[in-house]
């Protein structure tokens, strides 16, 4: 009885030491989890998650304050990636946060109507709007994340959301259509 206890204790201590040594010796420096989460988020900075930008949302997720399903621009793919990263189950998008848009939109300014009030410039989270007071503003299309934060401040409603122009260079092959006979379900 005594021998067994001692042996087991010694073994426990030995393995504890080995594990402790391994933990130090083979330590992997990884990005802080906030940065990893932030890297997954689409960086539209739209605030639909109710946090003022993607990084604050990432912080909230890592603190356990926010759920992973509050990012409409990222959609299902982002939720899946977050779930994989954090080891939790993916869940459907929180309808409170908004809906997934079928295609990527960017803002354009109707330059005839714009009065040059600079309110949209102040609202843009990525400085994608150019212009000065009393001068027509314009949006750098390539920098626009489509967050729509510039829409509410505009006093004359001169900002429109339009689909991103498709270019042959950036065109994507669609997923192959399953033809009859393939085990894809539904088609009896």
């Amino acid at each position: 009885m005594f021998t067994a206890t001692v042996t087991l204790s010694l073994l426990a201590i030995l393995f504890g030491l080995i594990l402790g040594y391994a933990a130090v010796r083979f330590k992997i420096d990884s990005d802080p989890v906030v940065d990893q989460i932030d890297a997954i988020l689409p960086q539209t900075q739209c605030g639909q998650c109710s946090y003022p930008g993607c990084h604050p949302y990432a912080e909230a997720i890592s603190n356990g304050e926010a759920d992973i399903n509050r990012c409409p621009p990222g959609g299902e793919a982002t939720i899946q990636a977050l779930a994989d990263l954090l080891g939790v189950d993916p869940k459907p998008l929180d309808p409170e946060a908004g809906e997934v848009k079928p295609e990527k939109l960017v803002a354009i300014i109707d330059e005839q109507t714009c009065i040059g009030c600079t309110l949209c410039i102040q609202a843009c989270p990525v400085d994608a709007i150019l212009g000065a007071a009393k001068q027509m503003h314009t949006i750098i299309e390539s920098e626009c994340t489509g967050c729509e934060l510039c829409l509410p401040p505009c006093p004359v409603d001169c900002i429109l959301m339009v689909p991103v122009k498709q270019s042959a260079n950036h065109w994507k092959w669609p997923f192959p259509q399953p033809s009859a006979g393939l085990n894809e379900g539904g088609n009896l």
């Binding site: 900075q45 990084h55 990525v126």
Partner: peptide, 8 residues
Amino acid sequence: ANIARRRH
């Protein structure tokens, strides 16, 4: 996204 993050 990286560009947007930097700009933000």
